[in-house]
Each structure stands twice: as C-alpha cells, then as structure tokens.
Design a protein around this nucleic acid. Structure first.
Lengths: 328, 328
DNA sequence: TATCCTTACGGAATTCGTAAGCATG
DNA sequence: CATGCTTACGAATTCCGTAAGGATA
C-alpha cells in the first residue's frame, strides 16, 4: 500500500469509477492506474470495487471505508507540499478561488482587501465561471475554495458550508411605474418584461418556483450571466431587473431605483465549497473566517474531517441559525 | 515525498532524533533511514532538522509543521491496514491494551466483560507492566491503548486523556488498632510500618508529597508492584497497607478492615494514552467510552487530531470537571 | 575509542508507458 | 465497433543492504 495507490483509488472514485478519466486527471497512463488499483486491493487483501466483468460498478463495504482515509492521505500530502512551499517562500502563497460573477464582483472585493492588508504579498487566483464549473474546479484541485449559490452542495467530493443568506431586489430606471407602487407583488413583476439571471445561476431556481407557486409566468426577455449585464439592459429600458441584493452599489443608486423583494422570495444561501478532507492553509482559514460570521477557524478544521452523516446535521444547524438571523 | 520518508521522519522525531534507533524500530538499515530523510528534505526543498555537523539537534520551523502531518499520514496508513484486516475477518479484531497491575486486575475486568458481550469474538492483548513501559509500548505501537496513572502524560508522542480520579485507602488486618480509631491522620499512618506501592507506580508520588508536606516520613517496610502483593504482606502482619480504592474487593472485606484516606491525600488521575493522530477502531472507541464517563466518541476522535496547545486546554477542562465531581 | 551519520556501490524490486488483447453495450 | 479494463514486456528508475568513510564527544 502506498500513496500513489491511494491517490489513484480516490481519483477513480471521484471520477465516477472511470479509470481512464482518472488516469488523465492524474497525468499518467490508464494501465498504470489500473495496476495501482489491483495492487492496492491485493495489498489490503480485500476487493474495493464491485465489478461486472471488467467494469467497476460500485464500492464494496471495504472500499467505502477505505475511501475516507485515502482522501485524508491525499489531502495531507497536499498540505505537506503547501507547507514546504510556504517555508521556501514565506511571503508568497496564493489564494485560489473559483466563484461566480456576482460573488466575485460584489462580495469578494471587500474581504480580499482586508486579507491583503494582513498578507500584503499574497497572490490571488480568481477563477470566474458558472456554478457547475466552480464545483468542478474545486473538486479537481484547480481552485481550493469555491463560492457559489448553486451546484456546490451536490458534488460528492465537496463539502459545502453555508456562508451567508441573501435575497433579490427589483431594479428599475428612475421614474418607472414600479418605483412608487405601494406594494410590489409577484403579479406586478410578471406584468413587465424582465431581465434577470440565467437558470443555472445565483439562486434563479428559487425565484422561478415562487412564480410557479403563484401560477404566474414571468416575462423574462433577457437572461444574463452577471449582474452588470442585467443593469445595462435595465438602463436601456429593455425591462425591469431582478438582481441579488449585494449587487446593488452606491453607484447604481444614482441611475436606478431599487425595491426590496424579501417578501416575495425565499432567501438564498451562498455556500463555500472545499474538497473533502482538505487541509486549509493559514491564509485560507483567515479568508474563510472573514467571509462569513457563521463559523470559526476551529469549526472549519473540524468540519472538513467530519464523516458525512455528522456533517449534514452540523450544516443544517448553521443554516437554521442563518435563516433566523435575517442574514446578509 | 512518499509514505516511507514521512514514516522515517516521524519515527526519528519520536526517537529523539536518533537515526540509528529509528532504523531499528522501522526494521530497516540505518543508511536507508538517513537517505529517506535527505530525500524528504530535498523533495520539500527545505531542511527539516537543525544540525551540528552530522548530528541532528532539533527541528526547524518547517520540520515542526511537517511533523504533525507526517504523523497523521502514518496513522492513516495504520488505520487503512486495520480496516482491511477487519474486512478480511469481520469477527476478529484485537484490543491491544498496555496497563499496570492495578488497572488490569481491578478496573478492566468489568469493562472488558461488557465489551465482550457486544463483541463476542474479540481478542484481547493485555500487556502488564510499569507505567514507563506502558507509555513506551503505546508509543512504539506494541499496544494501542495505555492506561496508567504515571508517566503517560509526559511522553511527547502520546495523548493522555484523563479517565477517572481515585484515592487511596488504608488496609489493616481485622482487630488492628487503626481499625476503630476516630480519625485517621498522617501521623497515625506514619507510626506503623507500612506496605504500599513502589515509587514509580499508582500515584505513589502524591502520597509521598503529602507526608513530606506534613514533615513526616512514613516507615515503608515493603514497596510492591501490585495490590495483591501488598494485601499478602498486610495479611501476614508485616504492616499496614495503603492501596488504591478500586483494589479493595468484596473478598478483601472478609479478611481486612478498610478506612478511606480521601481527607489525607489529593486525588490521583488515571489516564488513557494513545498515539498522537492515532485513528481508533470501532471497538476501541466503544472500549474508551465505556471506560470513562468523561468523554464521548466524538470527542475522542476530535481530541486525537487536535494541535498541542488546544489539546492542553481541553484536557484541563476535563480534569476540572472530574475533580469537582468527586470522581470514581 | 565508541557512537553515530554520510557516502559508495552492486543487485533487486518497482514503476512506467506502449502495444496488444479482450469484454461490454 | 467504440469504449474501457487487463495483460505483456522492455526500459528506466528507485530502493535496499553491506561496507567503508568521516565527525563528534
């Protein structure tokens, strides 16, 4: 039994038991991975996979138990390499974050400037993409921290910590009829052409389901990836905008009127995703604790190492306290 | 960087930076270990040891940070092997415990019979020896769980969890003058020849210091390793006996008279020792939770992975609640 | 001088990639 | 027949133990 065998095993599991893809991800040949799996099973003296012919179709009980420790080993090796890198170049260090446009442009600048104050020479890798890619990038190790509202909590190799909750607001050009309407209702929103996020992003699903429940169909003329695009089209008079609260800046207040929509839609929860068993670095822990008031350093370290069932309960607890406290 | 290099590094650290002894403990040659250390340092790109000439005299900062993760890796590999063993033979499994005579004969029988009820085919390795050897055996992996009152909390590679607190009692033959004395004092104890434990065992040090504080010198005619020997000599009229409370059985009540000594001596704390970063098995967790009411499974798992400073605070907290609650 | 770490060297074992074989859908 | 796992094989690398060399106390 050695590290490479375990790394292969973990990667094959995270690649849905596809040996070929695992080989690509590990920058090696497919027979090499195949052999490592055989040798690992031989070394442990017990099969790890359920097989149908030559295909791997599932994990045995032993495989399930082994997987967790294999992931821990892989993560510890990563941590050792990071420590060495930090010691070689104490000033360096990189915060590698993958996130969506809204988080990247309206949530992160504030947190990052605070972190930069404490770590002046820290470098940032900010990857911006769609929620599913955010999850993929963290799972594959391209980024170490993912921030998104969708997708990240479903990936089996990721742990998704609820970071904060938020809602939507209505964005209209100054002088628009909705600006001064007593109470904004779903009906009033549905009676205007609307510009908002695409289906896969920024809590769009929660909005859709609210309209559906009311038996309404919003007239979404343009669906965009990012808040800035939405603002541009609203500014051009194409329609009314529905965007995330945190995307409304002081600058926007000069051009637009804004109406809160908390009474119409459920709160969304934005989550931070890290790989299971990942060992966060010093800087990453600082970043995460600054990002959300709902967890402490100690908790993060504990949570990463938790078994699945216990983790679920813990996360639900955080979400409850979050939704109670009105969030933001 | 690989598992063997990390294992060598961890072992050299736990063998007080003596490469030769580490080689013996790892069942390999000394040059092999030496080379692994060099390769590890080269792979990490940073020295792990402070050196004077060819001698290792300490850890660098990088070495200290690396050590923890190296220990975790080693422990995870051990856990993987144990899991495989359990899967190969689900009924088997062994509880390997090293402890002192008193614990082994008077504390463990009850706990072990309960555990055997849940795991009928479980095998036990009970090693009985002096406290220092108990610590050594756990550190070296001969046993996985150590139980003792002395020594175990000082070993750098061990975590010592307070399990329970206890005190001494006076053992005299029926009809002895002390049997009916109103109040047993240190003076009255010092005025008779005494039979008790040897200095290195079963909380003997706390007893000595109580006499010393009072300016008294007890007349210890025989110092023994185990409670049964003490009883035998007391029975023969050699002197009065001072033994641990839990060593007094119903059987003893027929032959001896007993007087509590809680008012004269401080409580002792018996501790359970496990290797740092060790991953306890299912059975071991059950055993440990049955052994002491002061911790839960979850806590044990957390504690093992804690960094040193945090651990210290946690343990002190347990001890406080223990000493308050009169213990037993 | 005894202990302990490093270097040198030859043989053994491991590991890798390519190429070819075979099963599944 | 396309996808995907296994087997075969030769080359390169790594790893080990013995033996010898040098440093320290």
């Amino acid at each position: 039994m050695n590290q490479q065998q375990l790394a292969c095993f973990a990667k094959v599991c995270s690649e849905e038991l596809n040996v070929s893809r695992a080989a690509v991800a590990l920058f090696t040949s497919q027979p090499a991975v195949s052999r490592h799996l055989q040798n690992l099973e031989e070394a442990l003296g017990t099969p790890l996979f359920e097989r149908r012919g030559r295909k791997l179709i599932g994990l045995t009980n032993a495989g399930k138990r082994t997987l967790h420790h294999a992931q821990v080993v892989v993560a510890q090796f990563e941590a050792l390499e990071r420590i060495a890198r930090e010691e070689r170049n104490p000033r360096g260090g990189t915060l590698s974050i993958s996130t969506t446009h809204t988080q990247s442009n309206y949530l992160l600048p504030d947190v990052i400037s605070k972190i930069r104050h404490d770590y002046p020479e820290l470098r940032f890798n900010l990857h911006q993409s769609m929620p599913i890619q955010v999850a993929e990038m963290v799972a594959s190790g391209v980024a170490n921290i993912g921030i998104a509202t969708e997708s990240v909590s479903k990936h089996p190799d990721l742990i998704a910590l609820p970071a904060y909750s938020w809602n939507r607001l209505l964005l209209v050009p100054k002088g628009h009829p909705l600006e001064l309407l007593d109470e904004i209702t779903l009906e009033s929103l549905a009676s205007y052409p609307m510009v908002t996020y695409v289906t896969s992003m920024t809590g769009r699903k929660l909005m859709d389901s609210a309209f559906e429940k009311a038996g309404l169909v919003p007239d979404i003329v343009i669906a965009a990836n990012d808040s800035d695009t939405i603002k541009a089209y609203v500014n051009n008079g194409i329609g009314i905008g529905v965007i995330a609260e945190m995307a409304f800046t002081e600058e926007d207040a000069k051009r637009f009127s804004m109406r809160p929509l908390r009474h119409l839609f459920d709160n969304n929860i934005t989550r931070v995703a890290i790989r299971r068993a990942y060992v966060p670095s010093r800087v990453e822990l600082d970043f995460l604790t600054r990002l959300s008031p709902y967890w402490t350093e100690e908790e993060i370290v504990n949570i990463v190492e938790m078994p699945k069932e216990k983790l679920k309960a813990r996360i639900e607890k955080i979400e409850k306290s979050m939704l109670k406290g009105a969030g933001g």
